[in-house]
Amino acid sequence: MSPNRNAPSVYAQLVDLLLIQLSNYRWAWRGTVVTGVVAPVMMLLAIGLPAKQYGTGGLAYVLVGSVVMSLMFQNQNQVAHNFAFMKAMGTLDYFATLPIHRAIVVVGTVSAFFLLSLPALGVTLLLGALFLGVPLAVDPVALLVVPLCALPLAGVGALIGLLAPGPQDVGPIALVTTMAMLFVGPVILPPDTLPDWLMAVSHVSPTNYAASAIQQVLVGPVTGRLWVDVGVLAALTAVVLWVVGRKVPWHAR
């Protein structure tokens, strides 16, 4: 009986899965242009012009909301579509018949879509800052914060893709979830424009913490609240990705 060889290392598995999932740019780039740049910039213009009455502080919310929207479309929604596709087409079965860890598939997928989302994120941020006249003050902590904002969103997307009855159901579910999470809390609009009940509900929405963290590291100033946001986002990432790992159909479970 052969072969007498070892299974690939965790590092090798992760690199391969990342490269395999990065190949999704072949279909995802159109969506990246439309939903990752055009839609957030249009929203930014539609809400940003009337919001000029709130001054730079109010416009910063619109800018950050557009960045969060871009992150959601590129991470949550694209990952949702990808997991639904992998489940329906047998790609998850293909991975399950190879000597790789289930968690590597999850981490490789969300990491690849995060990397694919960065150009759209950058373009949205720069166009938004230009159109709205919001000065950027990028803190190096952004290198930690931005991925941490994207990961729980990607995890929610993976759950949508895995739990949706079929690939055709993913689009509407993901869109409704995106809209709900964008408008629940001070993501696009300043907190003083929102009713108290919406502010209370916002404490359970990851976008609330993502928007707060992104505003601090991209527009400033960084305050002690950042570490609360980072803690919540890190905890959410761990919980959501663990649940995703449990829900991935894998081997004879």
Binding site: G90, D93, A96, L98, P99, I100
Partner: peptide, 13 residues
């Protein structure tokens, strides 16, 4: 996974 090469019926994976 190390010993078996599986070809499923579905071809779109």
């Amino acid at each position: 996974a190390m010993l078996v090469g599986y070809m499923p019926q579905k071809s779109a994976a």
